[in-house]
């Protein structure tokens, strides 16, 4: 896993009080929606923190500031990644349903920006009220309202919601979908960031997968438990 230096440029606080850090680094690092990094501040961190970009730009990206991290503006970080290939909606898909479970709403915002920029219809469902969505995005109260409509579904969720998601996708609303083209971004601890500690292991479909090596995005079919 390549390791690159980034600098913390600034902090920002959103309406919900969530603090994000804007990171700038090597221009050679291309970051796509759904990518993940595992990063640490040398001399200050004893494990890597999982970082999922919540805002992308040409010069860098923003991530939620990890709770236990001391990363002031100006700090130098080492980031392993980007991990995975990002979300991969079919080229022909026109109607995207984005479902955020737990606190994963911000992780799907880059997909909102991408979908609208490419002229796709975007609907959003979230466990929590989110203030940052553009007016063009339709906010739905329940995923089942959007599942029959969508030709691509992207889910963002924390690790510990995996069992509950597996239960939901056995429900009637999901029965007509093949689940082979819908993605789920799973976010969990990656203390080593290099496939060594097994702390990010997921079990499903008879296989053990590591978020930091094979993930963090999986086809929905592959993570059913």
């Amino acid at each position: 896993m390549p390791a690159t230096e980034f600098k913390v440029e600034a902090h920002a606080v959103d309406q919900d009080g969530r603090v994000s850090a804007r990171l700038v680094g090597s221009p050679g690092v291309e970051v796509r929606p759904g990518h993940m990094f595992s990063g640490y501040r040398p001399g200050h961190d004893w494990h890597c923190h999982t970082l999922v970009p919540i805002e992308l730009s040409a010069t860098g990206f923003s991530v939620l500031l990890p709770e236990a991290a001391d990363w002031p503006p100006g700090a130098t970080l080492v980031l392993r990644g980007p991990m995975g290939n990002g979300f991969s909606p079919p080229e022909s898909s026109r109607r995207w349903l984005l479902i955020a479970l737990g606190d994963a709403d911000l992780f799907l915002h880059p997909m909102v920006q991408l979908g609208l920029a490419e002229g796709r219809a975007v609907a959003f469902v979230s466990d929590r009220q989110t203030h940052k969505l553009p007016p063009a995005v339709e906010v739905l109260p329940d995923p089942e309202d959007g599942i029959p409509w969508a030709d691509y579904i992207a889910i963002g969720m924390p690790f510990d919601r995996l069992d509950s998601l597996s239960g939901q996708i056995r429900g009637d609303a999901w029965r007509m979908r093949s689940l082979t083209q819908d993605d789920v971004l799973v976010v969990g601890p990656t203390p080593c960031g290099m496939g060594g500690c097994q702390a990010c292991a997921l079990e499903g479909q008879g296989a053990r997968r590591l978020l930091c090596v094979g993930g963090p995005i999986f086809r929905l079919r592959d993570i059913r438990t």
Partner: peptide, 24 residues
């Protein structure tokens, strides 16, 4: 199998790691 419990807890000076020691 992997544990279903919380796997990482930070505390000043270190952290606790609980994976369940998954292996095949």
């Amino acid at each position: 199998r992997t544990t279903r419990e919380t796997r990482l807890h930070d505390y000043p000076g270190g952290f606790l790691l609980h994976t369940g020691l998954p292996n095949p």
